[in-house]
Simulated assay, not measured.
Amino acid sequence: MQRSTRQRIAIAGAFASTHRPLSPQEVLEVAGKAIPALGIATVYRHLRDMTESGELQAVHLPGLNPMYELATHEHHHHFQCSSCQRVFDIHECPGELSGLAPRGFSVHSHALTLYGECSDCRSLARKAKAKAAEAPPKPRKG
């Protein structure tokens, strides 16, 4: 069992407060609010230790460096926002997908990632669109 240090508690708190997979940089940003002197090397060291001890698990998505989430999660899938790149949990599974495998293949597990825009980014886009519609037209040069 690892020692409970202020840094480790702040890092665990980052996952508990966000309820989603986090990149090391996101962990630094969230945990750094509690411990401003927290450094990225300390975050990486604790992520490694917490993964090895089974507290965290790595989340591997195509084109991204590993992210991390609490290991208490049951089988689930992920949603990645194409605008802000944040990753969120999807707590439902479409079920047995082995019928999609090519003939003769044996499926051992599956992972599914949905891509789109999160509610925060959609809201920002709507606000920006509304603000642009309210703005008077710019005068033409020439």
Rank of each mutant, 00 (worst) to 15 (best):
L64I: 11
A71Q: 15
G39Y: 02
R45L: 03
L70C: 09
M67T: 02
M67L: 05
L47Y: 01
T18Q: 02
V59P: 00
Y68G: 03
R3V: 09
G99H: 12
F79H: 11
E29I: 04
L100C: 11
A31I: 14
L100F: 06
H76K: 03
S83D: 15
V59G: 00
Q7N: 08
G13W: 07
H91E: 13
L47R: 02
E52C: 09
S17T: 05
V107T: 15
E96V: 15
Y44T: 03
E69I: 07
P66R: 08
Q7Y: 01
I40L: 09
T42W: 00
I11Y: 02
R6D: 10
V87A: 12
T42K: 13
K33Y: 09
G13M: 03
S98C: 15
Q80S: 14
H75V: 05
N65M: 02
Q57F: 11
S17G: 05
G13R: 04
G95K: 03
F88C: 04
I40T: 06
A10E: 01
A16M: 13
Y68Q: 02
H76V: 04
E74D: 11
C84G: 04
H77T: 11
A14W: 00
V87M: 14
L100T: 04
S23C: 08
H73Q: 14
L97T: 06
V27Q: 09
G104I: 07
T5C: 01
N65H: 12
C81S: 15
Y44A: 08
A14N: 06
G54K: 01
V43A: 13
F15Y: 03
L61Y: 03
G95R: 05
G95Q: 04
H78T: 15
M67A: 08
A34S: 10
R86H: 14
R103F: 10
E55I: 11
H73S: 03
Q25V: 09
L38T: 01
V43P: 07
G95M: 06
A10L: 03
A41I: 14
I11C: 03
L47E: 00
M50Y: 13
G54T: 07
P102S: 13
P102R: 14
F105G: 13
R8P: 00
C93V: 06
C84S: 14
Q80C: 07
I35S: 02
G54A: 02
L56A: 01
V107P: 00
R86I: 05
Q7I: 11
L38W: 01
E74Y: 14
A101Q: 10
P94S: 12
H73P: 07
S83V: 07
Q85I: 15
A71P: 00
T42G: 05
S98V: 11
R20I: 08
A14S: 15
C84L: 08
H78L: 10
F88N: 07
E52G: 15
S53D: 14
H75Q: 04
L38R: 06
A14R: 00
A34K: 11
E69G: 14
F105E: 03
Y44R: 06
S83P: 01
T5N: 01
F88M: 13
L22Y: 06
D49K: 14
E26A: 14
E26V: 06
E69K: 06
H76A: 13
G54V: 05
L28R: 07
Q85N: 07
T5M: 01
